[in-house]
Amino acid sequence: MSQTNPPPVATEEAPSDIAVSVRNVSKNYGDVEALKDLTLDFPRGELTSLLGPSGCGKTTLLKIIAGLLKPTSGEVEISGKPITGPGPDRAFVFQDFALLPWATVLRNVAFGLELRGVAKSEREAIAEKYINNVGLSGFEHSYPHELSGGMRQRVGLARALSVDADVLLMDEPFSAVDEQTRRKFQEDLLTLVHEENKTFIFVTHSIEEAVYVSDQIAILLPRPSRVLEVIRPSGFRNKSADSIRRDPEYLDIVDNIWASLRSYVE
């Protein structure tokens, strides 16, 4: 029952090519310590999940990596260079989609490029391509309120992909869509990680989701936030999308994570 520290399952040597590295980051809101001396590496070309109960500071950490929040101390390096704010090397996918309701799908997807000063015809050509990639062709001239939740998040994803950043930061991107859409998204995400040579950092509170999509899972504990352990599932990564959920290793990892987190859930 009180198995608070299960032995790490299926851990392999961490790869040496690190895309994002968080060094001794602390973040205080007044007297509240949201993050305390947190150190974590994100390997290039892989998907790392930040998993933990609510209030564990996973979104805070993601926003610090994005440059949207300044850490109280410590620093974040992208490919070895410390960051000072948002940069062209990172793109963000928002939990509530953060689409412009007065703009069409096309303009929303091209909006990141628009802010970078890319010419209209060029950015729309790029946006068209990614709208197509996420399966929304035909909806270019629809407005967000005409789309379902899942389709809106595809727009958010296409916007993040179209700026061609090395690092994709996803803040609980599937939490506002329904269960079936979420499953489809998770499968699509596996393909995306495989095809695009990008580093994904994925915040979630769903253990199953984290284990299903991740190359590496960082389990965070709350108040103040710290890394409990880093798990690297290896056995089922190359299996087909449908058989992962039945893989014994997948089920074991899900169980172990729950065992170590349950005492922190109030």
């Binding site: 440059g67 948002p86 793109a91 928002f94 953060a98 802010l115 916007r159």
Partner: peptide, 23 residues
């Protein structure tokens, strides 16, 4: 103004003027 839209503008490198005019 919805906070996430402002964050979106920041994270995609919008300037303060972009933020005012476009968001």
């Amino acid at each position: 103004t919805p906070e996430s839209m402002k964050e979106m503008c920041n994270s995609f490198l919008g300037t303060r003027l972009d933020m005012l005019i476009k968001i």
